[in-house]
């Protein structure tokens, strides 16, 4: 019931303007994660085992996380950015080294996520979940081959006007780039013009650009094709078996969210305890079961739910390229903006 004390203190400080609110008591951990991305069961287990009390706050975009960490006063012990934000956080000096290779359980990180390009030697981060961004199709409406970007960008008649895309420019544009066989973070106007043309051609068939309520729209049949993450596609399929996640041969966008410790974290030791806890196969499996995403710890499959470890959404077919998104240069971001404004003006 530390909450009550905190609110009272907060109230008192608001009224009197005297004290700082959040005292960094020993047994606390402030976790800052994406919305809807932390398993309550996992937190409970961690609290029981370690006696550390965890508070979870959430953010809605990488930029929100960046802005809050840049402000320096946030007071979080663990944050979970997407991998392409990790180099930014490092170069801006917003995270502190954890030297993961010296931590217990480090050797369990799967080879292709250990010492990745965004954090060589895992000085600052370890993987949390990894996944892909592609799209989900209702096979009850469309019986053709779904593993084709034409289904979403240039839809057949039965799917026209039945398409939903994400709302964030980077996610829409990166998918278009994969479909066109173009590199990410392009600084070439001609390439970006191709992206714009593709998206403009698609727009009349798009019902809505929205990154929230994905499951709802798919399951209710409001739309028949939805740009989607693989974990959400899996959750949607559990409710409506005719939904299928696409793996086009051009490849799919891939990402890995990572655990980092912000600079100035009030409870560094507890953060390290949490990171080691997450490297236990049994624990990260609880998280995977809850979110529907794969993780980067070997041996966790043994603890994963039936229907998750061999789910089609989590296992890209042999030979499908996984294209990990990059940290774009300001010039590339500027071109993306121009494409987006031209698309939605």
């Amino acid at each position: 019931m530390s909450f009550n004390r905190k609110t009272l203190l907060g109230l008192a400080s608001a009224g009197l303007g005297l004290t700082a609110t959040i005292a960094s008591a020993d047994g606390e951990l402030q976790l800052y994660n994406w919305t809807d991305y932390t398993s309550p069961e996992l937190i409970e287990k961690f609290e029981t085992e370690t006696g550390i009390s965890v508070t979870v706050d959430t953010y809605d975009s990488g930029e929100t996380l960046l802005a809050k960490l840049q402000s320096g006063a946030a007071g979080y012990d663990i944050a979970i950015p997407t991998h392409n934000f990790v180099p930014i956080l490092i170069s801006e000096g917003l995270v502190q080294p954890i030297n993961a290779s010296e931590l217990e359980g480090y050797d369990r990180i799967v080879p292709n996520l250990a010492s990745p390009w965004w954090d060589e030697g895992n000085v600052y981060s370890i993987p949390w979940h990894w996944g892909t961004t592609s799209f989900t199709v209702d096979t009850a409406v469309y019986s053709g081959d779904v593993d084709d970007y034409d289904v979403i960008f240039n839809p057949p008649e039965e799917l026209a006007g039945q398409i939903a895309m994400f709302k964030s420019p980077d996610e829409v544009i990166t998918m278009a780039q994969v479909a066109l066989g173009l590199p990410f973070c392009s600084e070439d106007p001609n390439e970006m013009q191709q992206v714009l043309d593709l998206l403009m051609g698609q727009k009349p068939h798009v019902k809505t650009y929205n990154s929230d309520g994905i499951l709802e729209r798919l399951v209710s049949g409001d739309v028949s094709v939805h740009q989607n993450w693989n974990g959400y596609s899996l959750l949607a399929r559990k409710e409506k078996p005719s939904l299928q996640y696409a793996f086009p041969e051009e490849g799919v966008v891939a990402w890995a969210d990572s655990l980092v410790v912000p600079k100035g974290a009030p409870n560094y030791d507890n953060a390290i305890t949490f990171i080691e806890f997450m490297l236990e196969p049994e624990n990260i499996a609880i998280q995977s079961n809850s979110s529907g995403y794969a993780n980067g710890v070997t041996g966790s499959e043994a603890f994963m739910d039936e229907g998750l470890k061999d789910a089609a959404e989590l296992s890209p077919p042999e030979g499908t390229p996984l294209k990990f998104i990059e940290s774009c240069s300001p010039k590339a971001v500027e071109l993306q903006n121009r494409v987006w404004t031209a698309l939605l003006k």
Binding site: S61, E63, P169, Y209, Q336, N337
Partner: peptide, 25 residues
């Protein structure tokens, strides 16, 4: 505009919002 209108056309609110998030301007 985003939820009921489908977010297919930018409004001033979403334009400003965009500059402080993905557009980084």
């Amino acid at each position: 505009p985003d939820l009921l209108g489908g977010g297919k056309k930018l409004m001033l609110g979403s334009l400003v919002q965009l500059q402080f998030s993905a557009a980084r301007d």
